[in-house]
């Protein structure tokens, strides 16, 4: 585990020490994006995920990675390489995720990571888009009788180290003049078992992850209560390295294409019927007219591939998050009272 935690940092340092421009493969001609060229040469897109969070990325009984984050990786793979099967999921921890991306171990990071100024300013990384608008919540045991976060003065709280949750709880307790004892365990399953065994009074992380964790407890879910308080804003996004703006565009617009598809009602099952559509927005989206794909350095059919193979944003949500019993809420389209708003694709 310790090896796991520091390996990313070590890889980064080794890269920094030895490599010269180690994340940029030597490719003079091509798309103008070193990362895109590298994925094409490799025939594979390396996507950093958690691999431990139900609803976001967790292998199913067949070993296939399932979840919103996993499907986001697939969508970018479909856009960049034309085939979702060319994605490779790289497990990362909360602590080694940034170094994994910085050092070039992964091409992108889709790992329920909160978009903050500090991370964009200091890490040499940037957020392409938000795939889940979340907030920090608390999960407690029903037997504790707690019904609101403000009743938790003096509580012991289980948190993963290196997360923005850590800082959010700290701010919350500071504002309310309360005290708490943190229990910080790196490994998620160890942390969750510490909470279930009663070592902590509460388990805190993004409310989405709490809901899916509670759901995964099966019949015992009834003993756990998700407090109504959401104490912070946690826009979870997809990250790429700075310095490869073309690749940033590919990742960002892949996501926007999925939201646009939902706005227009284009789904994986009916996308073929839209090939004869007269709506100029849809025609541009599907590459029937215009050259949006060329602008990104991609195939004209890039968005068609994404929608056909992965689906639109709503489908991705219904497939992964709805079964966990989480309402769409602010993650709905702007036309339905949510925050997902696709800039025009023209």
């Amino acid at each position: 585990m310790i090896r796991y935690v520091t390996s990313g940092a070590m890889a980064l340092i080794a890269g920094m020490l030895l490599g010269s421009g180690f994340v940029q493969p030597a490719s003079a001609q091509g798309t103008g994006s070193a990362t895109l060229d590298a994925t094409r040469t490799r025939g594979q897109l390396l996507c950093g995920t958690s691999g431990q969070v139900p609803g976001f990325s967790l292998p199913d009984s067949q070993g296939v990675m399932r979840g919103l984050d996993a499907d986001t990786c697939r969508a970018v793979t479909a856009a960049a390489l034309g085939d979702v099967a060319k994605v490779k999921f790289v497990p990362t921890t909360t602590q080694n995720r940034f170094t994994a991306l910085q050092s070039g171990e992964v091409d992108m990071l889709s790992r329920s990571t909160t978009w903050t100024l500090g991370r964009e300013g200091n890490l040499g990384l940037m957020f392409a888009w938000v795939n889940y608008y979340d907030g920090t919540g608390f999960l407690v045991k029903k037997s504790s009788g707690v019904t609101a976060a403000k009743q938790m003065d003096g509580a012991t709280i289980c948190v993963q180290p290196g997360t923005s949750t850590e800082l959010a709880i700290n701010d919350f307790y500071r504002q309310n003049n309360m005290k708490f004892t943190p229990i910080l365990i790196q490994d998620l399953s160890e942390l969750q078992s510490a909470f279930l065994s009663g070592r902590c009074d509460a388990y805190s992380t993004d409310a989405s992850a709490l809901a899916t964790f509670r759901f995964s407890q099966g019949p015992k879910a009834a003993d756990l209560v998700l407090l109504p308080d959401i104490i912070s804003k946690e826009p979870l996004g997809v990250m790429v390295r700075k310095g490869d703006d073309k690749w940033f565009d590919v990742v960002r617009w892949t996501f926007i294409a999925m939201v646009t598809a939902e706005e227009k009602g284009v789904t994986s099952s009916n996308v073929d019927s839209f090939m004869t559509s007269t709506d100029p927005d849809i025609r541009r989206l599907l590459g029937i007219e215009g050259d949006l794909g060329k602008a990104l350095g991609l195939d004209p059919k890039w968005a068609y591939n994404v929608i056909k193979q992965v689906g639109n944003f709503g489908e991705m949500w219904d497939r992964n998050i709805t079964p966990m019993g989480v309402p769409r809420g602010i993650n709905n389209l702007w036309t339905k009272g949510g925050l997902q708003y696709a800039p025009p694709m023209r």
Binding site: G118, G162, Q186
Partner: peptide, 8 residues
């Protein structure tokens, strides 16, 4: 580790 993660 936490420090290097929060500060980068």
């Amino acid at each position: 580790n936490t420090t290097l993660n929060q500060t980068g």
